[in-house]
Design a protein around this nucleic acid. Structure first.
Lengths: 256, 256
DNA sequence: TCCAATTTCGTACGTTGTACGAAGATGTCA
DNA sequence: TGACATCTTCGTACAACGTACGAAATTGGA
């Protein structure tokens, strides 16, 4: 009889998997009987990331990944508890790939860097936008990322809470821009037409169907956008504009 | 032989469906043979909205909706071309339910209203966050909403493009807050624990697994958040903070 | 040498959207 | 009135998904 009853581990199984490489990761029980695993968790996660990069998150099926290694689909479940856990591992692992640039002196440049860094990453791995719907998971690489982001807003005169909220606003904004870029690309893929072609093809129908409805401002603004961008929107400029306003607001708040 | 070859309608079929109630909607061909339809598109969309409100978007299956009317699943396809089109109709129709409050005089209050209005709606219908991944569709109610949002930023001294971008920043920010609230609720539902309980249950594991890793700022900020909120985050306060900064930035930009 | 622990993986189930085609209902025209 | 064209309804079926289950194969330790 042990004094410590081995209560079923209440903690989340994904946690140990996320931190499997770090020092504190509890070493496996000594006995390692049974066949050796043919691949590693890292390889599986990397393959899943590559697949998501190339064909989108929907293409990341258990069967498809297993096939890449010549394994049966069910074999993956001896590496990873389920698909959702795999997505979390993908998110943390891909986060670890990006280097974290040195932070500039200038406060404005620091905040810009946080947003642009997020934006670049989400453009390279748009599926992260869909994974984040699950949870902002506590992996080692995400923790490191968060620490870096906090460092960017440290010393500006913000309270601890405000530091967190400022990072959230910047990262969230960058995510929204990335999302609208993703939607645009997806729309072009689904319809098989560019945005301009879509408007061309639907111009008559829109006029017909909207006859009798009046949206004066929307019309004026839409026309202006169309002329300026040759499209309904231009995410790159939206990024610059919104980011400037947000940073203005933050810096004004701390009195700079 | 007609001079006008009846080219297959190149325009998006969802468009006519979206605008089916408006004046310009092309009247159906006179001949209406065949059985009368037992329900209406509006009823179907309303039922789908109710289902999504009650049980989430994943519960909105063609079979589930059909069952509500005692119909066979395939019957829905004589009302709506496919599920994605139904989601678009849901989004526009639910947008039409919300009233658009009168806009205050004070510029700051106007911008706040746009963000808070979006936030309230997304809290009432969180599934809108998932539908928006498809496309910002051009329905009548969405158009009206957009017109109202533009009215809120009109007359401030912004250019046409800036008006659009300002609305996008405000609405996007409100959406991010709503999303983090949704994630929080989902996490509690999936794990069966409150956020506080989750941290309690995983405290030991986290300490063990993160031993050797150091995130000084994240730790400090996390502790501050935990003490202030009794949780890792408090979306309501994030809304106030971020909104204030964004509006500060916009108003400074137009010199107020 | 034998057993316990592990990995591998074929089969199968429930669920999804929806293609297909038959059956039934209805309006129009001869 | 009867015949037909047109439309709605919906049962069946298929492919794809995640994954539960359990048998087979493989390995290290006793």
């Amino acid at each position: 009889m042990s004094d410590v009853p081995d209560q079923p581990d209440q903690s989340d199984p994904s946690l140990r998997l996320l931190w499997r490489h770090r020092a504190g990761a509890r070493e496996e029980p000594k006995t390692k009987r049974g066949p050796k695993q043919k691949v590693s968790v890292d390889e599986i996660v990397d393959a899943a990331i590559d697949l998501a990069d190339a064909e989108g998150l929907a293409a990341v099926t258990m069967r498809a990944i297993a096939q890449r290694f010549g394994l049966g689909a069910m074999t993956l479940y001896s590496y990873v508890p389920n698909r959702d856990a795999l997505l979390v591992l993908m998110a943390d692992q891909v986060t670890g790939r990006a280097e974290l640039p040195e932070l500039p002196e200038d406060p404005r440049k620091r905040l810009e860097l946080v947003a642009n860094h997020t934006h670049d990453e989400l453009r390279a791995h748009p599926w992260l936008l869909e994974v984040q719907d699950v949870r902002p998971w506590l992996g080692p690489n995400m923790s490191e990322r968060y620490e870096w982001q906090l460092r960017a807003v440290d010393g500006l005169g913000l309270s601890d809470l405000e530091m967190d909220q400022t990072v959230a606003v910047l990262v969230g904004f960058a995510g929204n821009i990335a999302r609208s870029e993703l939607m645009k690309r997806r729309a072009e893929q689904v319809t098989g037409m560019t945005e301009a072609e879509w408007w061309e093809a639907n111009y008559d129908t829109l006029n017909e169907v909207m006859a009798g409805s009046h949206y004066p401002l929307a019309n004026r603004v839409g026309t202006a956008a169309g002329e300026a961008y040759q499209a309904a929107s231009d995410p790159a400029r939206e990024l610059d504009y919104g980011l400037a306003r947000i940073i203005d607001g933050v810096l004004a708040h701390v009195g700079r």
